[in-house]
């Protein structure tokens, strides 16, 4: 593993087998998550972000299957090769997931404290009741919630509070990697900022790394250290956040950023022409070529491989260079 990455994903492939064909939802993705960093993952809706987030923890469900690649977790080895027992041990404890729509998947008939206790108990059955109560208390205060929230049911909480509970549950065993899938997409911007600050402070306290999946480019610009961009099952660009916004290299990234509206001027909303590709029948060559304004000779036949320079990686024929 290079430079002590916490998580190193190599050529990961996750496919869904369906009657209509194979959906290549994640198709050869490689990246590293560095210690203590916040990596933002954006990209087209349906490009495989959630599938990958789940697969990193082997939480994907059939018909999804790992079709190749490895996910090396520091000190553990390849997550893709762990047996059930090994998996159970690393989940929550090393790798934690706050899934898409988490705040709506809290158990409606269970008090918050019992939902928190469940996660802790399955991992550390030895804990006494007093220990457990203390842990729950600490966990709630870590996400900025009052201890009396523990006695409430989900419907008695606001969206922001529920989302913080989901973060508290996900991080109750001090994981070294937190994967959060659209953690704030249902919240107002003031609460968004608070939930993000909560996530950031939990992360800093734990010294953990975070992978945040989302669509809000403004939020990503504010929270991420580095950003990855997915298109049609591939990671097409990976760069420090500042570079990505000021100098996007991949044409898809550039057009995505251009389609973000501002409060400056009122104008028609710009979108990328053409339709999103189907992942059953991905266009040959560069998957973006049918929509790419810069497409040229090799694009419709040769798949562009990732190349690296200046700490960024891009998969586009416009940037021939050293293989990443």
């Amino acid at each position: 593993m290079n430079d002590g990455a916490v998580l190193s994903v190599k050529d990961l492939r996750v496919y869904y087998d369906t009657d209509a064909g194979t959906v290549k939802a994640v198709d050869g993705v490689s990246f590293e998550l560095r210690p203590g960093e916040r990596l933002g993952l954006v990209g087209e809706s349906g490009s495989g972000k959630s599938t990958m987030a789940l697969a990193l923890m082997r939480l994907h469900k059939p018909p999804a299957r790992i079709a190749g690649g490895e996910v090396l977790l520091d000190g553990v080895g390849d997550v893709m090769k762990l047996d059930d027992d090994g998996l159970r041990r690393i989940r929550l404890d090393r790798l934690a997931l706050v899934p898409q729509g988490a705040m709506n998947s809290l158990n409606p008939v269970m008090r918050i404290r019992d939902q928190l206790a469940d996660g802790i108990r399955t991992h550390e059955p030895g804990d006494t009741r007093d220990d457990l109560a203390e842990r729950i208390q600490a966990q709630l205060s870590r996400v900025g919630l009052d201890s009396e929230v523990g006695g409430k049911f989900p419907h008695e909480l606001s969206g922001g509070m529920k989302q913080r509970v989901a973060i508290a549950i996900g991080t109750s065993l001090s994981p070294s990697v937190i994967i959060a899938d659209e953690p704030t997409s249902a919240l107002d911007v003031v609460v968004q900022r608070q939930v993000m600050e909560t996530l950031r402070s939990v992360q800093e306290e734990l010294g953990a790394s975070v992978l945040i999946v989302g669509h809000d480019m403004g939020l990503m610009a504010q929270i991420a250290d580095r950003m990855g961009v997915m298109y049609a099952g591939k990671l097409v660009e990976l760069a420090p956040v500042h570079d990505l916004f000021t100098n996007p290299q991949h044409p898809y990234t550039r057009l995505l950023i251009e389609s973000v509206p501002t409060l400056m001027a009122k104008r028609a909303l710009a979108s990328i022409p053409g339709a999103p590709p189907t992942l059953i029948n991905v266009p040959p060559g560069c998957p973006f070529h049918p929509r790419c304004p810069s497409a040229f000779e090799p694009c419709d036949s040769e798949v562009p491989l990732p190349t690296a320079q200046n700490g960024r990686v891009v998969s586009c024929h416009l940037y021939p260079g050293e293989a990443a």
Partner: peptide, 13 residues
Amino acid sequence: SMVDASLRATILE
């Protein structure tokens, strides 16, 4: 709320 910026633009337009 759960789609990318480009699709957001397509749908809102």
